[in-house]
Design a protein around this nucleic acid. Structure first.
Lengths: 345, 345
DNA sequence: CTGAAAGCGCTTACAG
DNA sequence: CTGAAAGCGCTTACAG
C-alpha cells in the first residue's frame, strides 16, 4: 500500500532528464542541450522538449550538473561575524542582492570572531565546492590563513582593508571595504581640534576579540592621547552604550569626549547623558561610527563617520563576479567614509 | 609552462576518495566508511586512512555524496522578505545558529514580498535539492502555494501563523511564530481603555504589499474604530517613523493615539513629537511593535509588544530538525508576545 | 542538428 | 572487517 507524501527523510527523486528525453523522443544529450540553453538543436525539438519538461514539472538537478561538469558550482560561501548588527546585515543585503540577481546561490555561515568556528565552517562549506568565498577582513589564525590561501577559488575579504595593506600582491584575496584605522584617526583629529581634555571609548568584545580595534587605534593616534577604554563583554546595542557611558563616566567624571564602537551604542550613551542632565556637547562630546539610520531622528544630530554599507556588499559581489568571469578587477576597492559633523561633538 | 594558481573558473579537482584509498592501500569502500564515520572497519585501517586523508588535505565532496546517496542533502533553503529590518535579521540569526550547529547548511534568498521573485528563487533553490524549505508565513499567489505544496521536503513558515489557522492539517507546513492579529488587537484594546479619541497608524508597504496588515486589522478591531492610516512607500526606519508622524499629525491634528509598524518607526515618531513639544502621552500616545533594543534607552520607555525573535528562529530550526529526524513535532508553535506597558502610552 | 559512450566522486546493496 | 559492481543525474568530448 502507498501513502501520500512521506517525509521519511529519504530522497524523493523527481523527474529526471532521462524521463523527459524519453517522453520527448530525443536523446538525453539533446534534452540536456535545450534545457541548459546551449545551442545545437532545431526549433522543433526545442519546443517539444520544453513542452514535456513543463508538463512534467521538471526541476533540473544542479547537484548532478555540478558533478558532471567542469564549470564549478553557482554556490558562494559567505562567512559573517554576526547577523545581529545593523552594520553587517546591510553589507550582507548588498551582497545577496547582487549575487542572486546573476544566478549565484549564497550559502551563509555566522562564525563570530572565533577562528576555530570559522575554520570548521569554511571546511564544511568547501565540501560543497563553492565557486567563491567571502569572508570578513580581519586578523586570523595561521591555520585559517593557510586554509584561505590554499583554496583554488577566488576569495574576497569585506569590510576591513587595513590588514596587510602593503604586502598585498596582485592575486587573491580581493578586498572591498574601508580603512577603519583611517576613519578612527580622522575622528580623533576632528575632536582633538575642538575639545581639550581626556577622551573615553566604549566598545565591546566577543571571545577576547575587541571589535573595531583598528578604529580605536586610529582614534588614539588622531586624538593624540590614549583614551580611557571600557570594553564590554557583550553585544553592541543601544543599551550597551547607555550602560557603558554610565560606567565610564562615573569612573572618570572628567572625560570630555566619548567615542563609541558604533552609532547605536553612541545613541545609548547620548540618552544616558541627556537623562543625567549632562550637556552635549558642552560638557561631554559624543561620536559614533556607521551613519546608521537612528542618528537622523535625534534632536541633536549625531557626529559620526558614515559608511556606505550596502555599497560594500554590492561592490564585493561585483568584483567577485568579474573575477569569476576572468575580467580584470581591482584587487583592493576602498569605498571610503565620510565624517559627519553633527551636533553632539 | 605552468602558472601558479589560475582562476580561470574551471574546476580545480582536489584530492578524491579514490586517491586516498589508493594511498592507504584499501578499497574506496573502506575509505568511504571510515571517512564518513560509518562502522565496519578495524582501528588499524581507520588510523591508516585518516592519516592519509589528513596528510593529503582531503575535503569530502558533498555534491558527489549527495548524488550517490538516498539520504538527501544537508542544505536548507531559507527565503526571507528582507535582511535590513532588525525584526527579521534576529529571526535569521536564531535559525542559522541552530541549523549550522547540527550540520545543516543554510542557503538564503531575499525575495521581498514579491510572489514572482519568491517563485523564481524557490525554483532555483530547489534545484539544489535542499532537505527542507523555510519561508515567511504570508498570503501568497496560488502558483507559489501550489509549488510549496508539491514539494516533497518539509517546509516551515515562520513569523506569522495567522493565515489559514483553522484549515491546518496534521501535515506540512510547520508553523512557528505568533498571531499578529491578536497582538494588534491587544494593543488596540489597551489603548482604547486609556485614551479616547481618534487613532492613527503609520506603516510601510513594498510593491503594494502593506507590511503588518494583520496587526493593523487587529488593532482596528481592538481599538474599536478604524485608525487614520498613513502607509509609506518606503522601508521601515527611524526616519520613516519621524516623517510619517509629521505627515499624519499635520493632516490630522486631533489624533490622540499613534500606532506604528515597529519600534524603530515608533521611536522616530516619538522623536518628532518631542522635538515639536508635543506631550507624550499627554497629548499623543505612542506605541510600537517588536520590543527592539532601542526602546530600552529612551527616557520615556516605549509602549510596545515584545516578541522573542531569536526564539522564533531557534524553534523553527528545532522543529524542522525533529521533522527531518522523523520525530513527532508540533505542527503549529506559537511563541506568543508580551504587551509592554511603557511610558509613551 | 543529433546521439552513444564514458565519467564526475561518491554511496548503496551485495557478496565474501 | 573488506571489496567489486552498479548507479545517482547530469555533462564532456567525440562521432556522425
Amino acid at each position: 500500500m502507498s501513502m501520500g507524501k512521506s517525509n521519511t527523510g529519504s530522497k524523493a527523486r523527481g523527474v529526471s532528464l532521462a524521463e523527459i528525453a524519453l517522453e520527448a523522443g530525443v536523446s538525453r544529450m539533446t534534452a540536456s542541450r535545450v534545457l541548459r540553453g546551449a545551442d545545437g538543436y532545431s526549433e522543433a525539438t526545442k519546443d517539444k522538449v520544453l513542452a514535456v519538461a513543463n508538463r512534467l514539472g521538471y526541476v533540473p538537478n544542479r547537484i548532478a550538473a555540478a558533478l558532471g561538469s567542469d564549470a564549478g558550482t553557482s554556490l558562494v560561501a559567505i562567512a559573517l561575524p554576526t547577523l545581529g548588527r545593523e552594520l553587517y546585515s546591510q553589507v550582507l543585503e548588498g551582497l545577496e542582492n547582487k549575487l542572486t540577481s546573476v544566478g549565484y546561490q549564497p550559502i551563509i555561515g555566522v562564525v563570530g570572531y572565533d577562528d576555530e568556528a570559522e575554520f570548521q565552517w569554511l571546511n564544511s562549506a568547501l565540501a560543497w565546492r563553492p565557486c567563491a568565498l567571502v569572508v570578513t577582513g580581519r586578523e586570523r589564525s595561521s591555520a585559517n590563513r593557510t586554509l584561505l590561501q590554499s583554496v583554488t577559488v577566488p576569495v574576497v575579504e569585506m569590510w576591513n582593508i587595513d590588514q596587510g595593506y602593503d604586502q598585498q600582491t596582485t592575486s587573491d584575496p580581493l578586498r572591498v571595504g574601508l580603512n577603519h584605522r583611517a576613519a578612527g584617526y580622522e575622528m580623533g583629529r576632528y575632536l582633538a581640534g575642538r575639545y581639550r581634555g581626556q577622551a573615553g571609548y566604549v566598545g565591546t568584545k566577543i571571545n577576547d576579540t575587541t571589535l573595531g580595534s583598528d578604529r580605536l587605534a586610529g582614534f588614539s593616534d588622531g586624538f593624540g592621547s590614549e583614551p580611557r577604554c571600557l570594553i564590554l563583554n557583550d553585544r553592541s546595542s543601544f543599551y550597551a552604550g547607555y550602560y557603558g557611558a554610565e560606567q565610564l563616566l562615573s569612573a572618570n567624571p572628567s572625560l570630555r569626549v566619548l567615542y563609541f564602537l558604533d552609532d547605536n551604542m553612541a545613541v545609548g550613551g547620548l540618552m544616558f547623558c541627556l537623562q543625567k542632565g549632562i550637556k552635549i556637547p558642552g560638557e561631554v562630546a559624543i561620536a559614533g561610527f556607521g551613519g546608521l539610520d537612528v542618528g537622523s531622528v535625534l534632536s541633536t544630530k549625531l557626529t559620526t563617520t558614515k559608511v556606505r554599507r550596502l555599497k560594500i556588499g554590492k561592490l564585493a559581489a561585483e568584483n567577485l563576479i568579474k573575477r569569476l568571469n576572468g575580467e580584470p578587477v581591482a584587487v583592493m576597492d576602498d569605498v571610503g567614509f565620510e565624517l559627519i559633523k553633527g551636533e553632539t561633538a
